[in-house]
């Protein structure tokens, strides 16, 4: 891959130029499907864009010192890492050079969550701190399952390179891994029933409570980009390989959209669970999937 193709991937498709409108579109789909399931019409198509522009034009409270600088920095770090994660997705076939690495992608996907935890504690609001603590507990619970599932997928194909993973044929083991990843996605994207950290009724939207204006706009954008990256990761694992790059791009977009619809419907149909129930769900119920997947992957490795 030449530097030009790398830049095109990062800036055009599936990078910034595709990812930002896609993020707004997914945020709209989330709100619209919740509205439709409640028997409402819901927000207009351009609503996330209106919200973003409006938030850019709002003032922020005066903050000085290190805490002020950090509060401006966290959302920017979250947005840039989420955009980088989207740019790494192996949607289009490339040739040679730097190819997406699964470990880098997972690290980039994890940074926004860490930023949210840090942001809540930096804001020094009691609600923000509770939200951050919840986010930290949630992240420890779902990440065990999430990482085990991804490792099992990678181990069964003998590679950590995203390109090779996307091109490998789907096995039954891979489907178990994908299922475990899908179960983790609502927690990763803070959706019902695992929307504990940003519970707007109980803790005034948690870590975001003190953020206003452009900072909040960046948080919204990073949330949308996380949607694109997380659904895109599953979509690239599911998507069949096409000969023509346009077709594979189309399959990627369609599959991502399908996963967004599925997750939004789940969010609209469920209520928020308590923190102990959530942790128990991940540590007791879902981990069986992941352990099954990873142990069978290792057995396959030993036998082959």
């Amino acid at each position: 891959m030449s530097i030009l193709t790398a830049l095109a991937r990062l800036l055009i498709f599936p990078g910034i130029l595709f990812a930002v409108p896609a993020a707004w579109f997914f945020l709209w789909v989330e709100r619209k499907s919740v509205a439709m399931m409640q028997g409402r019409i819901g927000p207009p198509f351009m609503q996330p864009f209106f919200d973003f522009i409006k938030l850019l034009g709002k003032s922020t409270p005066q903050r000085t010192g290190v805490a002020g600088a950090l509060m401006r920095a966290w959302p920017l770090i979250a947005v840039s890492t989420a955009a980088g994660a989207v740019g790494l997705l192996p949607v289009l076939p490339s040739s040679g050079g730097f190819q997406g690495d699964l470990i880098l992608l997972l690290a980039l996907l994890e940074v926004p969550s860490i930023c949210i935890i840090a942001a809540g504690f930096t804001s020094r609001s009691i609600f923000g701190e509770i939200g951050s603590a919840r986010e930290a507990v949630l992240s420890v619970s779902y990440n065990v399952v999430f990482l085990l599932a991804i490792i099992s997928v990678a181990a069964s194909q003998h590679t950590f390179r995203l390109e090779a993973l996307a091109q490998a044929p789907a096995t039954s083991l891979r489907w178990i891994g994908i299922l475990a990843v899908l179960i983790c996605l609502p927690a990763k994207l803070h959706l019902n029933p695992f929307s504990l950290p940003n519970a707007e009724q109980e803790i005034y939207s948690g870590p975001m409570v003190e953020f206003a204006g452009p900072e909040l706009a960046m948080w919204e954008l990073s949330h949308g980009l996380e949607w694109v990256a997380a659904t895109g990761l599953v979509a690239t694992l599911i998507a069949p390989q096409m000969a023509f790059w346009g077709l594979s791009a189309l399959a990627f977009v369609a599959l991502s959209f399908g996963i967004v619809l599925l997750l939004s419907a789940l969010a609209a149909a469920t209520a928020r669970l308590a923190i102990d129930t959530t942790v128990r769900f991940y540590w007791q119920c879902t981990i069986i999937f992941a352990v099954l997947a990873v142990s069978s992957a290792l057995l396959m490795r030993l036998r082959s």
């Binding site: 509205a35 409402r40 927000p43 209106f50 919200d51 409270p61 707007e200 975001m208 003190e210 206003a212």
Partner: peptide, 16 residues
């Protein structure tokens, strides 16, 4: 009445 059609959202924090 569905005020969300006008983009209305009830926020948890006055900062938002």
């Amino acid at each position: 009445y569905d005020a969300e059609q006008l983009g209305v959202r009830l926020e948890g924090s006055p900062r938002h």
